[in-house]
Each structure stands twice: as structure tokens, then as C-alpha cells.
Design a protein around this nucleic acid. Structure first.
Lengths: 204, 204
DNA sequence: TACCGCACTATCCTTTCGTATAGGTTTTGT
DNA sequence: ACAAAACCTATACGAAAGGATAGTGCGGTA
């Protein structure tokens, strides 16, 4: 079984290569950038499996993945990532990747996953997919002050301005102001929409 | 490798057993209910893998899974299900199952998955986990009329009563009434809370 | 037939929300 | 030290929401 391992970090790349290579079952090749990957694929024919680092020179996200798939064939390219957000894994598989390997995986698990993918089965760690999809964490929340977040939380509980004021020990008018600010920042036209946007974003 | 297959449907059970058995790599045993599973485990020692049908006599959901894990050891029991809702898979893995197999899986994929799990790796189909978790579909929505659902949808978009009335071609007062009814049925104290509850339930 | 639930409309009233304007404090950065 | 920004409070007003009560029409059912 021939596997091409592409990662710009020498340590990671060589460790994985050494590990997969031991026992002689797997023949490994390595690359440190996407151009090098395409070059090696073109030169040494299609590999049984290509492991692509997600944060690698020339990758550019899904584009690099697609180009590698075009070059090496479908169901032969897997993504290797250190940061391991669920969304990347999902997008990669949807784009045609055969699997997704977080660098936090244990060595034997990694070996098993490689064998599994070489058999043509999609592999994604169950633990990773079990995470709740909290995708848009703070696209908007970052611009909100602490107070505003507290008020927003009250909105999401369906509380009135008066109730929020009581729990935060502020005046009702102050809450009104914060609600107004929230609606402006979240591009909502009223409290209900603001609450829905917050909910959608996964806050609370 | 010794695998115990438990399913109350003769066809399913025997098909899987026959398939896994061919080639001689896997030695199969079968059972048709949870008591029979526990009995066989007690008699023939721990199996390398136990496949448990989720909708089987005596299972009773996670309880049957836990009892089987207690009897046969950790990381040796997988769930087999025809209905394949994401939540079951997630709960099962969290409860200590080594994997989850929908009966819709292809034969070779199933074989691969069995081998994979026998090596101690958790297996859950990536496609299944990619589904958005829509868990509580209609715990409350069932009691709502068609009109009420339309109004609720408007609430979730943060629209005013007037706006909802316009899009549904009704009077504003009528919307007020529906909102009131919605709040009663959803146990919300205002429109915002009603919208949040709807969102939480996965509607819209 | 009478009854009941559902949907719709109506009027009246109170509370809450949303906006504007105007000032105050504290914190932050230049 | 000063300006800018964020935070808090205050008053006031129109719009919207929420509640109560009452009445109409429709379809299904006893």
C-alpha cells in the first residue's frame, strides 16, 4: 500500500511516515506543500492514499483538496488537521475526501484509520462528529460588550426589559438602550429577531 | 474472530451472519433476543464483537446495551439499527458502544466496519453524523393548527403582528389571538419566548 | 337539532417596546 | 491632560404587544 503524506511540519510528517512505514506493510512518500504533492502524484502515479495537511502552503482550503482529488482520483485523499474543527471535516468529506484525521489521534488509531480508508471507506472520528455544530461562534458576538451579552441572554429567555433590569440591578431605560444597541449591531429590527440571531449563532 | 449477531428478524440476522462468515475469517453466532445474547455470552465466553439490534425483544434502549457491555466487556458491543436516527447512534457511543451500523449499509462496508471495530476503533458512518441534529421534531408542534404554525413562523422571523397579518392576508387582531394561543400552548409568556421555543424544537 | 371546537373579526384598555433627546459617569487611548 | 468611547440614567411620546370580552361563520358529532 502506497501512502503520500503531505505536511509542512517536519516533525509531524516524518513521525507519521515512520509509523506507517514500520512493518513494511505501507510504503510512504512525503511532500511539504501542495505543489509538491501534485508533482509527486504526477510523477509516481496515483497513490492508494494521500494525507493532506489542511494548513499547508498552497492548500487554500477546499481548493487544494479538490485539485489533489482531480490528480490522484476519487476516494483516495484524506485531510490531516491539527485544529480539527467539525466544519472542516464535514466540508472536506462533502467535497470528496475519503476521511479526516485530527493530529491528536493516537498512533494505532491512525494506523487503523489509514487501513480503513485504503479499503475505500470514509473515516471521520465519531467523537469529532458528535460535537454539536456550533459553527458561527462569535461572528457578531465579538463586537458586543459584556453588558450587552447579559442583556442578550435575557432576551433569549424571553424576559421583559423590566425583568432584565431587575436581575442585572439596572434601570429599565438602560435595558432599552442596550436592546436598541443590540438590534443595531445584530442587524435585527426588534428584540425577537435579536434573540433568534443569538440562538442561531449558538450563543446560549 | 468471533462475532455474535443479535436480531429478531431471521432474514437480517442470517444474511449478515452468512456474509461475515464467508471466507472463514469470521466465526459467527446468532441470537434473537437480549436474554439469548446474555445467555450466549455467559456460555461461550466474551466475543470479539457483539452486534445488537436496537429494536429487539428485551433491549429497552440503552439499558440492553449497558447490560451487554457489562457481560461481554467494554469496546466490544455495537448497535445495529434499521431506523438509524442520529440521536440513537450518539447515545449508544456515549454509553460505551464501539459503533453503530445502519442496516442500510452495503455488504462490503459492513464487513470493513466490523473489522474496524474488532480492532477496537469506534465506528459511526460519517454520513449519519453529518445530519443536522433535529432531535425534538414535534413534541409540541403536533398540537398546533396550520394557521398557528404559519403565525409561529412569522414570530421566528421577528415580524410584527401587522406584518404577519399582511403576508397571511388576515387582520392584525386575528394574529394577536393566534399569538396568545401559541403562548398558551407552548407555555411561553410572550412572543419572543414562543419563537425561542420553536427554534429550540428545530422548527424553522 | 343542538352542541362544540376552530378560525376569524371587533372594540376597549393596559402594559411594554422602541425611539429620540439630553445629560451623567467611568474607562481607554493618544 | 484631553478626547473618545462605553456605560448608566432620565423624560417623553408614538407604536406595538398583550389581555379581556363579545360576536360571527364553519365543520364535525352526539
Amino acid at each position: 500500500m502506497r501512502v503520500l503524506i503531505a505536511d509542512d511540519h517536519d516533525l509531524v510528517r516524518d513521525t507519521i511516515a515512520a509509523f506507517l512505514g514500520q512493518g513494511g506493510e505501507v510504503e510512504t512518500a512525503t511532500a511539504t506543500s501542495l505543489p509538491q504533492v501534485l508533482e509527486k502524484v504526477a510523477a509516481d502515479g496515483p497513490f492508494d492514499l494521500v494525507l493532506l495537511d489542511w494548513d499547508m502552503p498552497g492548500m487554500g482550503g477546499l481548493d487544494g483538496l479538490r485539485r489533489t482529488i482531480d490528480a490522484n482520483g476519487e476516494k483516495t485523499v484524506a485531510i490531516l488537521s491539527g485544529t480539527a474543527p467539525r466544519k472542516v471535516a464535514q466540508d472536506a468529506v462533502e467535497a470528496g475526501a475519503i476521511g479526516f484525521l485530527p493530529k491528536t489521534m493516537g498512533a494505532t488509531s491512525l494506523m487503523n484509520a489509514v487501513r480503513f480508508m485504503a479499503m475505500g471507506e470514509v473515516f471521520v472520528p465519531a467523537a469529532l462528529m458528535a460535537e454539536e455544530p456550533e459553527g458561527p461562534e462569535h461572528p457578531l458576538a465579538r463586537t458586543l460588550s459584556a453588558r450587552e451579552l447579559q442583556v442578550l441572554e435575557g432576551l433569549c429567555r424571553g424576559e421583559s426589559n423590566k425583568e432584565i433590569a431587575r436581575t442585572l440591578d439596572l434601570q429599565e431605560v438602560t435595558i432599552k438602550l442596550h436592546v436598541k444597541t443590540l438590534c443595531r449591531k445584530l442587524e435585527a429590527k426588534n428584540r425577537t429577531q435579536a434573540a433568534m440571531i443569538a440562538k442561531e449563532a449558538g450563543l446560549f
